[in-house]
Amino acid sequence: METFESLVRAEFAPQNTYLNTASNGLLPARTVTALHEAVRLRVDGGPLDPLFDDVEAARAAFARLAGVPAARVAAGSSVAAHTGVIAAALPAGAEVLTAEDDFTSVLNPFHVRGDLKVRAVPLERLAEAVRPDTALVAVSAAQSADGRVADLPALREAAREHGARTYLDFSQAAGWLPMDASLYDFTAVTCYKWLLGPHGAAFLVLPEDFGGLTPVLAGWVAGEVPMNSCYGPVTELAHSARRFDLTPALFSYAGLRRSLELIEEIGVDAVHAHDLALADRFRAGLRGLGREPVPAPGSPIVSVPGLGHRQSELARAGVQVSERAGRLRASFHLYNTPADVDRLLDVLSG
């Protein structure tokens, strides 16, 4: 039986100290191979059927990770598009409760409607800010800027008490944080971060009754029989959440299928323990340097005030991190090691 370490070594060999998964995850070797095979299929004029099979295999794999039936999962290309479908279904004047400075893709489609009441509060106050007239609570499970994790049990309870719906973006959480999408009304994920996929693939989880949403972006792939839905209006939408599919970026899903396969082989619980141990090692090392990170317990994303300006210096030293909101942001994933943490601390110590 292969171990965590052997699986990771077989898939990754970064040439630098890569601590930036919150921006982009590294592609596993099997994913790169699948991308090459997909391109070769098109170069040789092969049929598209195998690539559409990859979409369905990726949908099923993500559904298993999310703890829901595949029939509840729609395939798309971005969280913003999924948010737009949800925003389009809200009645004029509906209140949408959000977290201050959350990622734009979770927020902007509600704002551009122009006729919704969008209210933002600090993440820590989100649950207590739900009111009887709140129609929807929209928030990232983990914040992009600093890694803070929302109090999801408190949020679910507050939403249930007041009859509000919930929309969770797991883009900065799926892949390291065990998730159960059945606990929320709507859940979106983009797959090029912690799920290690190529850009251009995202998923939306909906209730079995679709939660009152209308597939306003539906094209031919949203038909119950897509090849019978190529001309004129779609006369029969898919009976599953596939009615909310967007025309897939086939190469992206060909690769994503293999990335999700790897996550399943290793197990999210094992990734969770590994990633958090590295983040905690970095937090402890920072305190030894007299630095205090933004409090984000239980997160593999560590944001450090006052060090954002060191990002370029770190890059020159072969250490890849981000600068976000003026802070240095390091993020740790399955291909990272304690030596990577120590290298980052060594450069920061001068």
Rank of each mutant, 00 (worst) to 15 (best):
T17K: 07
M179I: 15
G318W: 07
L256M: 08
I266A: 08
G308Q: 04
A315R: 14
R327H: 11
A92M: 01
A273V: 11
F332Q: 08
V341P: 08
L90D: 00
A61C: 10
A81I: 08
F282A: 13
R316W: 11
A164H: 00
T190G: 15
F282C: 13
D146G: 09
L328F: 09
W194R: 05
A70M: 07
A70I: 05
S322Y: 03
W194E: 03
R281H: 14
P153S: 06
A202S: 15
V271M: 03
L345A: 12
L196E: 13
D102T: 06
H36C: 05
L65R: 02
S322R: 13
W220H: 15
G306K: 03
A89L: 06
D340C: 12
E292M: 07
R30S: 15
N24P: 01
T3P: 01
S171D: 07
A317E: 14
A277D: 12
F332G: 07
D44P: 00
D49N: 09
L65W: 00
G223C: 05
L256T: 04
E128R: 08
L237W: 10
L51Q: 04
L19F: 11
V341R: 06
T134E: 01
E313G: 15
G267R: 05
V118D: 00
R131K: 13
F203R: 02
V43D: 14
E95V: 00
D133I: 04
A273G: 10
A70D: 09
I86F: 04
Y18S: 09
A75K: 08
R72S: 12
E11L: 07
L246T: 09
L260A: 04
A34V: 00
R40I: 07
F210W: 12
D346E: 15
G219W: 07
R287T: 14
V106S: 02
